[in-house]
């Protein structure tokens, strides 16, 4: 199949960047990233700069890849990362527009590569249970209801790819932050420090310059792991109640 690609090219963080048009010959069995590999191979053979894009596991779990494909994060297939999207979902002769995930908090590093370290800093602010190695009691000491564990898992399935931010018209990171808050709060081990956690994580999220949630749910619709906006509600609940119920003023 013959494809026309319009790809965002940007040399580094400072440069303005713009779209370039390329032709590529692909086959239906290829993954989207393999199609880009083919393009890059051709560019290299012509001694031109290949298109930079982030990728690693190519099996939909590491969260490294991600780009806007025809206006959608990770492309047209629901619940699918870019690396798991295959070319059979496109038509011969089609023009495909490829852009980086865009948000002030995700500055472009090069071409389609963006800096998502803001996510790491949100986790560092409180996305953990404060337990040192060796302190843990036996794993079966605290029973956790099966559905509760399963619900925590649903939230923990987040791969941190940033599609939620990319999809949100407000560039908000509440689904990412909410998923982590929700994962840990639902477990008895994590509930202990849930007040401090939600305060710190939300503060960091605001500091990073993400937009505010207006409950559009575009994040949920585009999330490759289908993380529910119910997790955002849970975070709101935790945040509001922890703001008013604690005796201490938290920093």
């Amino acid at each position: 199949m013959k494809l026309t690609l319009k790809i965002w090219r940007q040399k580094d963080r400072e440069e303005t960047g713009g779209f370039e048009t390329y032709q590529v010959e692909a086959s239906e069995e290829m993954s989207f990233l393999e199609m880009l590999d083919v393009l890059n191979q051709e560019l290299i053979e012509q001694k031109k700069e290949p298109v930079a894009f982030d990728h690693d596991c190519r099996e939909g779990i590491c969260g490294t890849c991600g780009m806007m494909i025809n206006g959608q994060p990770h492309g047209p297939l629901k619940a699918t990362t870019t690396c798991q999207l295959h070319m059979r979902h496109f038509n011969d002769g089609e023009t495909i527009l490829i852009e980086p995930f865009r948000a002030n908090s995700f500055p472009v590093v090069k071409d389609l590569v963006v800096d998502r370290s803001a996510f790491d800093r949100i986790i560092q602010a409180g996305g953990y249970i404060s337990v040192d190695t060796g302190q843990a009691p036996d794993g079966n000491v605290i029973p956790i209801e099966k559905d509760q564990a399963s619900s925590a898992f649903d939230a923990a399935a987040c791969i941190g790819c940033g599609a939620c931010v990319a999809a949100c018209p407000n560039a908000s990171a509440v689904l990412f932050t909410g998923a982590k808050v929700s994962h840990l709060t639902q477990l008895p081990q994590g509930d202990v420090e849930s007040k401090r956690r939600v305060q710190r994580m939300v503060a960091q999220m605001n500091k990073e310059g993400f937009g505010n949630c207006s409950n559009i749910s575009a994040c949920e619709a585009e999330c490759p792991k289908e993380i529910s906006v119910a997790n955002i509600a849970r975070m709101n609940r935790e945040y509001i109640s922890s703001s008013f119920s604690t005796d201490k003023v938290m920093d």
């Binding site: 560039a171 937009g211 585009e222």
Partner: peptide
């Protein structure tokens, strides 16, 4: 504030969740 969170906008948007109201 929301508008400012994405200064550089997309060329094309084609979202699955396209509720006009929201």
């Amino acid at each position: 504030h929301n508008r400012k969170s994405r200064k550089k906008n997309y060329r094309q948007l084609n979202f699955r969740e396209a509720d006009f109201a929201s």
